[in-house]
Simulated scan of single mutants.
Amino acid sequence: MRALTLGGHGTIDSLRLVDDYARPEPSAGQVLLRVTASSFNYHDIFTIRGMPGITIPFPIIIGLDVVGVVEELGAGVTGRRRGERVMVHPTDPLRGLIGEMYDGGMAQYATVDAGLLIPLPDAVTDVQAAALPIAYGTAHRMIVGKGAVHPGDKVLILGASGGVGTASVLLAKRLGAHVVAAVGTEEKGKRMLEIGADEYVNYREHAFDRWVRERFGKPGRLRADGGVDVVVNFTGGDTWQPTLRCLKRGGRILTCGATAGFDPVEDLRYIWSFELQVIGSNGFATEDFTALLDMVASGAMAPLIDDVLPLDRAAEGLRRVEDREVIGKIVIDPWAAS
């Protein structure tokens, strides 16, 4: 089978497309999937570069989002059938994250525990489903599951044009929020308006905290006006302090990651002076996936797909993710011709 493999930490150039990788066989309790779609996340960049405290079992097939058709059943598997279309829950309680701790979706076949399979509604395409697990599952747990976004809230979303960002825009709008998308280009800003954002700020042209104060007023310590109600910040780094300056009294920060750095300079005075809440969100649960699949199946939401590429162009797609050139998700079809 064809597979995109990583033999050791490095750069995207460290990835190798292997045409004759051995097809895996399902062990007891597992199924063999014919992978029909997989998508990239910024986490794949971290896997390639290496993360403190995480040891990758090389060689590894990357790809955390996996959708496919059940091809074979391992011994003892019940409740599953050959030909069933499924999405894979990315986290195996015993083995860890697929595409990081064991072989993932950037290949034509994959073996997974049968208990991780989530059936796909007929109305959801494989490409749509492949966009959901990591990015949309993370966003759903954060935006919906934490209960911190309410109708009428002004919500500023940093990194709005990526996978988690576009999911956050769509979900916050469904909750009745006034959504401001922070993006790095006018093209991305216009695209965010098309999917439902109410307005956008180009952070390369305007300091987003100053823009918020000019647009919504300076937050007051003794009154609940000015600023925004919620900032979604999964970038961290040098965006953290400006985030604190955006929030009205009693405002909330939602965070599920730190792509720009996990140890930013802090200013605790804003936390107590404005009675701010910092709300962390980690991962996703099966109920997040089923809720998302129901939304897509009913037409209430459509995941934003930037491009669908064949496996031999997968490295090109991941480089676009790394360079922030993506609006939405890059999906890979491992069976498509180049």
Score class of each variant (00 low, 15 high):
A28R: 14
T91Q: 13
A172C: 11
R213H: 02
A172E: 05
L94F: 08
T47S: 10
V212T: 12
N282F: 13
Q277S: 15
H150Y: 08
G74L: 13
G237C: 05
V228T: 10
D20Y: 05
K248L: 00
I271V: 15
D113L: 05
W240G: 00
D113K: 00
K154A: 11
P93L: 14
G184F: 09
C246R: 06
I98D: 00
L64F: 11
G283Q: 01
P90C: 06
V265H: 07
A22Y: 00
P59Q: 11
V296M: 09
R245V: 05
V164T: 09
L117H: 06
A182W: 03
F40D: 13
L311W: 06
D238G: 05
S298R: 15
L73K: 14
T5P: 01
D306C: 09
A167C: 11
A129V: 12
M295P: 02
V77K: 01
D113P: 00
G328T: 13
L97T: 14
Y200K: 02
H206Q: 15
V77E: 02
A337F: 08
S298K: 15
R221S: 08
A135L: 10
V124M: 05
D267V: 09
A28S: 15
G50N: 10
L309V: 15
A337M: 09
K173Q: 02
A297G: 06
E275L: 12
G115A: 14
D225N: 12
E322Q: 13
L116S: 07
S298G: 11
G217E: 14
V232D: 03
H140C: 08
D65W: 06
V35C: 03
V183H: 01
L175H: 08
V31P: 07
R49W: 03
G283D: 08
F262V: 12
G8E: 14
L276N: 04
V124S: 05
G83M: 05
P310G: 03
P151A: 14
G283V: 04
Y42Q: 11
G299V: 06
N41G: 10
L97D: 02
K188F: 07
Q108V: 00
K329F: 00
D323L: 15
F208K: 04
R223D: 13
G328A: 12
V149D: 00
R252E: 07
V149R: 09
G50W: 12
V308I: 13
K190M: 06
A207K: 11
A258C: 08
A181P: 00
A260E: 14
I330G: 03
F216Q: 00
G328P: 11
F284H: 13
P219T: 11
Y200E: 01
K146R: 15
